[in-house]
Design a protein around this nucleic acid. Sequence first.
DNA 1: CGTCTATTTGAATGTACTCAAAAGCGGTGG
DNA 2: CCACCGCTTTTGAGTACATTCAAATAGACG
Lengths: 200, 200
Amino acid sequence: MQEQTPKRYYDNLVRHIESRISLDSEEKDYICSFFRLRKLLSKQYLLAQGDICRYDHYVCEGFLRSFYVDGNGNEHTLHFALEDWWISDLNSFLKQQPASRNIITLDASVLLQIDLENREKLMENVPKMERFWRILNENSSMAQDQRLLDTISMPGKDRYLALLDRYPHIEQRLPQKHIASFLGITPVFLSQIRKGIAKR
Amino acid sequence: MQEQTPKRYYDNLVRHIESRISLDSEEKDYICSFFRLRKLLSKQYLLAQGDICRYDHYVCEGFLRSFYVDGNGNEHTLHFALEDWWISDLNSFLKQQPASRNIITLDASVLLQIDLENREKLMENVPKMERFWRILNENSSMAQDQRLLDTISMPGKDRYLALLDRYPHIEQRLPQKHIASFLGITPVFLSQIRKGIAKR
DNA sequence: CGTCTATTTGAATGTACTCAAAAGCGGTGG
DNA sequence: CCACCGCTTTTGAGTACATTCAAATAGACG
């Protein structure tokens, strides 16, 4: 695989932001100056439960997962993040309090990170970014809201089918146990669901 | 009960906004001019599933509930809104598409509503409002995220106890069936949970 | 008091979990 | 190339969580 230049990664970010607000080239450079490139290998922790989430991360490439480990040692997946998504523990990041979840890479990943202070400063100096994050948050709010509705209104099997429907290739990219923990069921039960579906 | 003047309601909104950003008195009046007062009796529909959610609503006083009715006629409560909260179907409002849920008053309520176009205009003319809504969305995102985590990681009984813990007086203000539909369980099962708890 | 709705109770059923064991699937090293 | 290791998935049995349906009871309101 060919190594991408840092420049290329920052271009991803710029394009991402420009899909929501318009920027002149001076602004682009200025905005980029607030983000630091970070490369991670596969299976590396970006954040551990209990630590403070110091950065919000834009994913240039790779694949990450955030999950909570409960008192019985069971994992519950909150989010996955592919390229062109963001990932953090919002609560921990905004309040600078201990995180309730882990974030780990599933593949080698390249991120652009910004800390809270710089994010504030960036919004102060480029008010458009206020708009950018407002829109970003609205979108994620809509998605979360839908997921919550699915979770409280559908049985596990239907949630699984709905997920396959929305992300047809998810099976190839993820072990089943992670899909199960995202759906809020156990891997064993997901296996049974799959058996039931295959039987037709 | 004494009738509040409209002025008083707008003051609520202003105080609410000022708790997040600072405003001069000119801005206050200007912002208020974008909101229209709306009074509803108890049990009135503010939005029906399938209709387009034309407004975002700030609750000056009263009590509302948003819920989805599934194919079997079961209700699933997404949100409650008390005074000083906002309520809408965000997805429907932002995309101007048919709503996936109903919004109904549980008590007589007074709202200040703004439509999408005016909200855009307001943010354009008072960029600070961009910031206001960004912060508002971040807060609601954090809350939703926590609720999702609770839902996928705890059994019904624990979710009920956690809810009581967070909103100790909720039992007095809500029939159990609404609490159940918020928790994602049936009223019958909630009754059994309560019996189990009382036995100690 | 009668009516309507909400809550409780009980029994039967379905959904989902735990535990344990077996089978499958890469890697790694001999 | 095969044997072995570690991890994931499957299978099966038993149990717990949660739902449905139906009937009884309790509360709220005119």
